[in-house]
Design a protein around this nucleic acid. Structure first.
Lengths: 213, 213
DNA sequence: AACCAAACCACATCATCATGCGGTTGTTTG
DNA sequence: CAAACAACCGCATGATGATGTGGTTTGGTT
């Protein structure tokens, strides 16, 4: 059985201790790097004597010096294959999305019981991702129909045509795909333009990509 | 203790049975609506005699008639306060994001053990969200710096041209904006196509919109 | 000095798109 | 039933885009 190598960056000694002892107690887990700041962590992996010291990093946000959020980029640059798990008390949208956009793969609140964190570690090591329920909720809300998008303005057939455009197909290709004449495709597109009040392919594609259709 | 009212739309009788019996056995859960298609479900809630029959809907994707994905909108229109949980075998990005964008709040694979599904139900009812680990991974990847973006492949001038394209400008308009000849715009675009290995405007626009430039 | 890449311009050709007009079906709805 | 609408098709014309070949100027490298 291969160890799961974990790195931890956390400045609070109490939390650091409790995590290292609880997680380290598991026979399949080894805590290989511990640091109390991003800077210190980067120094430790600096030598590059070994290629990579950990599979997974538990990263706090509220750190002295460079914040965990800022640190993600630097860390990923040095250890691109390491899964980064945010482990923090902050739950505001801003921090969550900044973390995810910087490359964090999971986001767990510190309220989470230790055994759940341990489970999450295994889940993530298996290639999955774990989000605390409240965090996950915010993430999915990000996808939700923010603006009550103009949906019913397009018939199902018209939506198929739009899909074709978005996929980068030419009129001819769309016609073939839907087994209709290219003139019919033209006709649909005329109507689509009128319905969406645009007058070019790109505008339709942008509307679609922006989720407004 | 208040019941959690659950609705279920699933066409496979086996799965339907196993879910209703297992979940229904819990003292805090009541399965209040069961249907094997979106159409049938909508009929059942049609009367509107009671304002809302369920807090939470377990929704399959592979349904006869209207697919679950298409159904989400119609369902949300009728029951806006109900949490919609996709429960399906499909794990392709396309379906996942379509579901989330349509308003699903969770996405669980059918491989998930029943007790985990039950936990998820409670989690969601508490205002959280549960994503299967493999799904969650795909969702977070959506935020990640997609590809180590081909940034320096384009000169500053070329990036200006691309910006023009993204803004929906024609060659002529770009030329005017940058005070250069339309033939020069053409020339730049040729080079851009070669650099990005594409051969149409839309491809460039999509690359740019996807943050790959 | 020789070289190269970026930016600039021109001309040419064929494909694709935008848009107009006109027409046939079939379904839905007042 | 008639009106309305979606989907289907055809034809025509001008605009825009994709791609090639050829050229100049300028600023930075070797």
């Amino acid at each position: 059985m291969e160890f799961i190598h974990i790195a931890l960056i956390e400045d609070d000694p109490v939390i650091r201790e409790s995590l290292t002892t609880y997680l380290g107690a598991h026979p399949a887990i080894e805590i290989s790097v511990v640091a109390d700041s991003v800077e210190q962590f980067l120094e430790q992996v600096q030598p590059a004597s070994r290629p990579l010291q950990a599979d997974l990093l538990l990263l706090d946000i509220g750190l002295p010096g460079m914040t965990g959020l800022e640190g993600i980029r630097h860390i990923r640059q040095k250890c691109p294959d390491m899964d980064i798990v945010m482990l923090t008390t902050f739950e505001d949208d801003d921090k969550i999305f900044k973390a995810l956009c910087s490359g964090a793969c999971s986001y767990i609140t510190k309220r989470t019981p230790l055994n759940t964190i341990q489970e999450a570690v295994f889940t993530i090591h298996r290639g999955g991702s774990y989000m605390s329920p409240s965090i996950a909720r915010k993430v999915v809300q990000h996808f939700m129909p923010k603006a009550p998008k103009a949906d019913d303005v397009l018939s199902p057939r018209q939506q198929q045509i739009v899909q074709g455009l978005v996929d980068g197909l030419s009129y001819k290709m769309i016609a073939d795909k839907l087994s209709i004449s290219i003139d019919t495709v033209r006709d649909h597109i005329k109507h689509i333009y009128r319905a969406l009040e645009v007058n070019s392919k790109v505008e339709v594609i942008r509307l679609s990509l922006d989720g407004k259709i």
